[in-house]
Design a protein around this nucleic acid. Structure first.
Lengths: 124, 124
DNA sequence: TTATGTAACTTGCAAAATGCAAGTGAAAAG
DNA sequence: CTTTTCACTTGCATTTTGCAAGTTACATAA
């Protein structure tokens, strides 16, 4: 269900880079094709990992966000980043150091940010 | 590099079920085809995640084992299992409870078992 | 020591997934 | 009202996957 090249990268972009729209996902380093991106977003939404809603200030845009199920993948992604840092050339040095220093704190912050963003999006 | 359907399942089988040979991998629930399995084992070995050596007591068999890089994926797999347990129907209830109770202890045991197995395989 | 079995693959081929390039339609900007 | 922008879709070539049927080297049983 996450066993393909793109799904976890999309989720990572949402969690780490804060990507929220189709165009922002396209801007990621890996270069996903538009049809693939559309398909993966559809599947992730079907699996309840992300949700989408129209942007109130721009009718063309859709805002994608992580569900609770999606944000719960943070520990998985975190361990992947730490593993890659130990054994592969790694991209985001700043993130790696943050995680190495205090992973638990980082995870709490991710969740807090998510709760804040979620609650003001759907008040009630 | 782990972004395909089979690689992480193979590693999981090695860590959780203790699979060590081609045939044992084939016996897994998911039903991987022999050509796929051969290809994935080759790739994982090329990436330094697993290693293989001939079975001294049976010249037909190859014994696959996790490298240090491979065993370091244990935290990733652990978090995946916990995530799946929270949000999906989950298979190995006993494992899930173990992880929920004391993940850190479990990871230490995995590593100890690996060190023991590795050191008597290559003494020195 | 010959026949049979088994382990770890390989090969051939059809089907599915992927990726590129070029649309499309609706909404926003100029 | 024309041009852009955004989120896609479509068509098609390429690549990956998966099934079934070999193949080769070793092991076991008669």
């Amino acid at each position: 269900m996450l066993g393909d090249r793109w799904s976890l990268l999309i989720i990572r972009d949402m969690m780490v880079r804060g990507s929220r729209t189709f165009k922002e996902f396209l801007g990621s380093d890996e270069g996903i094709a538009t049809n693939m991106l559309a398909d993966r977003l559809r599947r992730l939404e079907a699996h309840g990992i992300i949700a989408s809603e129209p942007d109130p200030s721009d009718g063309r845009k859709l805002i994608y966000s992580l569900t609770a199920k999606g944000i719960d993948l943070a520990p998985v992604l975190t361990e992947m980043v730490l593993w890659a840092a130990r054994h592969e050339e790694t991209g985001n040095q700043a993130l790696v150091r943050t995680l190495q220093t205090d992973r638990q704190r980082f995870l709490e912050q991710v969740r807090e940010r998510w709760v804040a963003a979620t609650s003001h999006a759907k008040p009630g």
